[in-house]
Amino acid sequence: MTRPVVGIIGNRGLLNGRYPVHEGGQMNSCAVSHVAQCIPLLIPADPAYLSVEELLEVCDGFLLTGGRPNVHPNEYGEEETEKHGTFDRARDAITLPLVRACVERGQPFLGICRGFQEVNVALGGTLHPEIRELPGRMNHRMPPEGTLEEAFALRHKVELTPGGRFARLFGASEVMTNTLHGQGIAEPGPRVVIEGRAEDGTPEAIWVRDAPGFTLAVQWHPEWNAEADPVSRPLFTAFGDAVREWAAGKGQATKVA
């Protein structure tokens, strides 16, 4: 039996500093294939090559990955500044309407880091351009030096809403996660439910109220060590189960408990 397809939202990059490529981290593909048990399909997130409508038909679910560029502040009604960093307007043009379409259709997605922020912006929320500059906040950015193991090391606790979706999924009200982001949620969208926060109050885990399908998103990077990590594995397993339900019913999604 053919496994369902998860579209992995890719980013733009340069190979050897000069050759334009569409790229995606191998750990995303590994988590989708080995833990979610789905076929990973890297998506060139650019409306010049494909449409949201085509993606919804080709893929059964979507992994909204992290990425160096940020969501453009115009998408949430603010002006661009140096603090907002770099942007990928082509990805904005695909992912934001894709999130809204998935929410309404019940088609599953899992948001990670930038993908977490995309979910909030797509549903009417806003972002802080640099959360480490806010009073009482820690530096959530990736350490500037060190190995990948050091960069993705578990660095802070996330406190979860007791009895909420994430707490039930992880079987705990507190988990340890990595942290590799500069921006964060300022105001949640009207339908965005925050169920996890870091020790400094930064939102870390969300889902979409009244959505018929799987709409979980996290600010950390669960794709790292997804097969062995006690937090990452149940998250990708649940995502894979939701994708299989969608693929089996093709439009008759079961609402997440």
Rank of each mutant, 00 (worst) to 15 (best):
M142H: 06
Y19W: 11
R18C: 13
R105D: 08
A31H: 00
C59K: 06
P135G: 08
T147H: 05
D60W: 03
A172S: 15
T254V: 14
I9A: 01
R12F: 04
P203Q: 05
D60H: 09
T65R: 03
G189W: 12
V121A: 00
G61D: 02
E223N: 06
K157T: 01
E75I: 03
R209T: 10
E174N: 11
C113G: 02
D92H: 06
E53C: 12
R12I: 00
A101E: 11
T202Y: 07
F116W: 06
T179F: 14
E145I: 13
G106K: 03
R244P: 15
A153P: 01
E23F: 12
E227W: 09
F166Q: 04
H84A: 15
V175N: 00
A226T: 09
A36V: 05
G13A: 10
G213E: 08
G136N: 08
L148K: 13
A242D: 00
E149M: 15
R141K: 15
P47Q: 02
L216D: 02
R244S: 11
I112K: 03
F170G: 00
G13Q: 01
E223P: 00
E118L: 05
D229F: 15
R209N: 10
T95L: 07
S232H: 05
L50H: 13
R100G: 12
P162D: 08
V103T: 04
R3Y: 07
R233M: 07
V243N: 04
R18T: 15
R165V: 08
G213M: 13
L169F: 12
A253F: 10
P143M: 11
A93W: 02
V35S: 06
P190Q: 09
P69L: 03
W224T: 07
G124S: 09
V231L: 05
G213F: 14
I94C: 01
L15K: 11
E187C: 13
L127D: 10
F87Q: 04
A45M: 03
G67S: 06
L154P: 08
K255E: 14
A238K: 05
C113W: 09
T126Q: 05
G146K: 10
E54F: 07
